[in-house]
């Protein structure tokens, strides 16, 4: 189907126009899909949270509360956009777009199946890490421009957290790249046809995965690393002064970032759209379901973290990164390099 649309566009229009129209169509498709996916993830978060705490969760709007987040989104859309009088208006209004756009840009490079990948660049993983750290600028801007002490403290914490945990994310992914020998996501998937990387790399891969999940949770500013919002200390942290749709952008960005972190883990550790033992290899479009299924399992894991662990103090946060994750990560890279060098990887 994608092929026919592509051919039809190029046959009816001049090449330059056709490529632009195609880009816009792809962008709209992604935007639409992830706006709905964001709503679904919020609902999932609320339901999962309720079940972890022996509650029932939203169950009034729609069938078992299935339309609850839709109703919330409509409410947020219709709300007045308020702001503080002394806020830096330009930066204050810019911040939510910064956060949401950087979150959406990351989605472009994921290989949902062999054919559905909007943007297959040869520095895929590097691009993802770079994009995901741009979002922090939006948070810093929002906190700074709000002219509110809680927002400012939250934003500064976000900066500290992002600078620290970027290292762990980068290094743990680098550990896996030692096996694949390529940053390109389609190449990484290709390598995993001999077994998912978490199996190929066995012990160091599992350590890298654990570090990645810890650092990824910190990167998305979710509990137990939600120093940025820290309701009990900072009101709502960096988005204290935002309301209505601007708040919704921050909220949606948080969930899309969570999706991105889980999707990177799926791609790098769990073979992206590859089915386990190649059981559905003959039906390539099923890859989408495998990709989204694995991603949802990892998102569920992050939700499990969130509703189990208490929030860290800021010094504990930094101790965890600089005294534990980073040294372990560095040793882990050396071990992985040795394993790749001595050909000790497990391949089927």
């Amino acid at each position: 189907m994608i092929e026919t649309i592509h051919n039809w566009l190029y046959s009816t229009m001049p090449q330059g126009v056709a490529s632009i129209v195609e880009m816009i169509l792809i962008a709209l498709a992604y935007l639409g899909f992830f706006a709905i996916a964001g709503l679904f993830l919020v609902l999932m978060e609320r339901k999962v949270a309720a079940w972890f705490q022996l509650r029932i969760g939203p169950n009034r709007v729609g069938f078992y509360g299935s339309l609850q987040t839709m109703a919330d989104a409509l409410k947020l859309l219709s709300k007045e956009l308020t702001g503080t009088a002394k806020a830096d208006k330009f930066l204050y209004n810019l911040a939510p777009y910064f956060v949401i756009i950087s979150a959406l840009m990351g989605l472009a490079v994921f290989p949902f199946t062999k054919d559905i990948q909007a943007f297959d660049i040869n520095i895929g993983i590097f691009f993802l890490i770079a994009i995901s750290s741009i979002g922090v600028i939006g948070i810093l801007l929002g906190g700074w421009a709000s002219n509110n002490k809680f927002a400012l403290i939250g934003a500064m914490r976000s900066g500290v957290q992002a600078i620290s945990y970027e290292l762990s994310i980068g290094l743990s992914l680098l550990t896996m790249i030692l096996i694949t020998g390529s940053l390109q996501l389609s190449e990484i998937v290709e390598v995993q046809k001999n077994g998912w990387l978490i199996i190929q790399g066995h012990i160091p891969a599992i350590i890298a995965f654990m570090i990645y999940m810890i650092a990824g949770t910190a990167e998305t500013n979710r509990a137990p690393f939600d120093m940025v919002e820290a309701e009990s200390e900072l009101g709502a942290g960096f988005h204290t002064e935002y309301s209505g749709m601007k708040f919704a952008y921050f909220f949606l960005a948080e969930f899309i970032n969570m999706f991105i972190i889980a999707a990177i883990a799926t791609t790098v550790f769990f073979g992206a759209w590859l089915s386990p033992f190649g059981i559905t290899e003959s039906i390539p479009w099923l890859g989408v379901f495998w990709f989204l299924g694995k991603t949802l399992v990892l998102i569920f894991l992050m939700m499990w973290f969130r509703w189990t662990f208490p929030r860290l103090r800021i010094d504990q946060l930094l101790t965890l990164e600089w005294k534990y994750l980073l040294p372990i990560n560095l040793v882990n890279i050396v071990i992985m390099a040795l394993i790749v060098w001595l050909n000790l990887t497990i391949k089927f």
């Binding site: 079940w51 499990w304 189990t308």
Partner: peptide
């Protein structure tokens, strides 16, 4: 995590709400 995991599995029967 095992404690909350058990809650998650039994929440349908044992919900306190």
């Amino acid at each position: 995590m095992s404690v909350t995991g058990k809650y998650f599995l039994t929440s349908r029967k044992g919900a306190i709400t």
